[in-house]
């Protein structure tokens, strides 16, 4: 039986086993490979997407449970890379290998959506579930703060210089 959801603003329907994790539906069935496989047990956060604005681990989310829900993936965060977090990530050159960064960005985006001025502790709390083996954590924290300043009206370089 087909399962319908709203994916990055568009209705999509998939005919797959009910218990297939959303991660593999995205990657194998819908050819949307921005969301990454890292552990399959909800330990690393590489597969983070939003379900109705909340960050979820798509590797542990049976597709049937998102029927009728709004799902946002990294591809839907901002079509031109215009999200403040994406700009901040580039301004501070956060990525190294880059594999975990879609998940990092989605966790950070969910945080900013509900907390417009997070403290270091808020960021740590929201993002401790996202592993980065290259060790980009300090830039991730800085970039979240930078994105906040950009959302408050500074350009990326101004916001960076006014740190």
């Amino acid at each position: 039986m087909a399962i319908t959801m709203t994916l990055n603003g568009k209705a999509v329907s998939v005919d797959v086993p009910q218990n297939m994790p959303l991660l593999w539906v995205l990657r194998d069935e819908l050819e949307m490979c921005g969301t990454k496989f890292g552990c399959g047990i909800g330990q690393c956060g590489a597969c983070t997407v939003h379900q109705d604005g909340q960050p979820i681990r798509s590797c542990l989310t049976p597709v049937a449970s998102v029927a009728g829900k709004k799902i946002t993936t990294i591809e839907g965060l901002s079509p031109e890379g215009a999200h403040a977090l994406q700009k901040a990530w580039m301004e501070l050159d956060v990525p190294q290998c880059g594999y975990c960064q879609a998940g990092q960005l989605m966790s950070a985006a969910a945080l900013l959506a509900k907390n417009s001025n997070p403290t270091d502790a808020d960021i740590e709390n929201a993002m401790d579930g996202n592993l980065c083996r290259c060790g980009t954590y300090i830039r991730i924290k800085k970039a979240v703060h930078l994105a906040v300043r950009m959302l408050n009206g500074s350009s990326p370089s101004e916001a960076n210089n006014n740190e």
Binding site: G34, F37, I74, W89, G98, A102, L105
Partner: peptide, 17 residues
């Protein structure tokens, strides 16, 4: 900056996976 940075933050970079 790394050449692939923009693709990475867009979720468009192609890894082996």
């Amino acid at each position: 900056p790394m050449l692939d940075e923009h693709n990475i933050v867009m979720g468009k970079a192609t890894f082996g996976m």
